[in-house]
Design a protein around this nucleic acid. Structure first.
Lengths: 210, 210
DNA sequence: TGCAAAATCGACGTCGTGTTGACAATGGAT
DNA sequence: ATCCATTGTCAACACGACGTCGATTTTGCA
């Protein structure tokens, strides 16, 4: 913000690259790498620690549990998705269909780039309340965003189960599930499914606006 | 195959209500009950065994692992859903919309009656290949059934990502995900979501048939 | 009644998690 | 330069849950 206080105001800030902070990132990187080759369940704390170049006991200095590691990893990845949603929400002067298409494209890209972590998030949500909150919160961002867009497009909303908001919720979770399944198959399948998802969004609008 | 060997050919058939077979069912019942109050993860083999009135070691006489218990439980519940799909598939002389509505209603009922097991199935699918197969196989039954219905309703299918089959797949998984979330909230929410899901199915058809 | 198959269980080995307490490195103030 | 609190590291331990083994009892049928 201001250039009058140039350096070293707070010694223990996340932007202050402490030795330990680097280790923390190394742990998350190791976890993500392990996630890539094995699944999530088979990955052990021992392996993550080894991947980060420390002992298992040392890992517990940084994270209180295996769950916390996963939570931090998911949070790191979902930060991007949340920023995307904010960016999209700021675009008010474009036609509704454009916002929807851009949203789906962003989500598609996220699944293409970070499929492993995204799938781990979905898989862990049932047993990890923190991850569940992060995940649902992020989906909700898009539910709200696209709910508004649907209303703007002319889809009526009486607050009931066939109103714009309810439809947006149903359609958003349709995307989530279909991308999840596709991302476990191949990147080509993710791209294919993006078209299907988009088609259903558009059909729903078309039919409800007329 | 042949009727020349009338009775008692195999003394260990599932329709032969052996003492042990009853225990097997008792174990599944106990597992289902435990699933109801606690989650799936926190349930221990010890508790399931206790619920069935046997020791932990004895349970391993019937099932090779905790996973196998869950698998058997899921299989038992999904049997009904599969039968439903067969029944629906046999109804060829009714209008497409009717088949779709009836399908959604059957699925809705299944989530209302067996939400706990259904959710356990979804939660375990990632880490349990057998459950995953059962689950996906059942969903596929409806994908095929409703894909045919879509074609019959006049939705074109070029085999691509916006063809009738692809749409049916996307819409079927939309239902799965939305029912899953709703069933963790309340029965009322399940009923509400059924309306939303139905609305999206109908909108997709309407827009694509015209 | 006899007896093989079915069923039961105590005790054990293993694996992965998380904790403890003692020890080493780090880096800023003096 | 050195002191010392903070930060970081780890071996060893305790615990809980899973799955196995061998010995023992129960069952049902000839």
């Amino acid at each position: 913000m201001s250039a009058s206080e140039p350096v070293a105001e707070r010694p223990r800030r996340p932007d202050n690259p402490t030795k330990g902070d680097r280790r923390e990132q190394a742990i998350l990187d190791a976890a993500e790498a392990l996630l890539e080759e094995r699944g999530l369940d088979p990955v052990t704390v021992e392996q993550i620690a080894a991947g980060a170049g420390i002992s298992r006991a040392s890992l517990y200095f940084y994270f209180g549990s295996k769950q916390e590691v996963v939570t931090a990893l998911v949070a790191r990845t979902m930060g991007v998705t949340r920023d995307d949603a904010d960016t999209l929400a700021a675009e008010v002067d474009v036609p509704p269909q454009t916002t929807i298409e851009r949203s789906i494209r962003r989500i598609e890209k996220q699944w293409l780039d970070h499929g492993v972590v995204m799938r781990a998030a979905v898989d862990n949500a049932p047993s990890n309340p923190e991850v569940r909150e992060i995940w649902r919160g992020t989906v909700d961002l898009y539910v709200d965003l696209l709910g508004d867009v649907l209303v703007r497009a002319g889809v009526p909303d009486d607050g009931g189960p066939t109103g714009a908001r309810a439809l947006a919720k149903g359609l958003a979770w349709m995307g989530e599930r279909n991308f999840y399944i596709a991302s476990a198959i191949s990147k080509a399948e993710v791209r294919r499914v993006a078209e299907t998802v988009l088609a259903i969004w558009f059909s729903t609008i078309e039919d409800r606006v007329g």
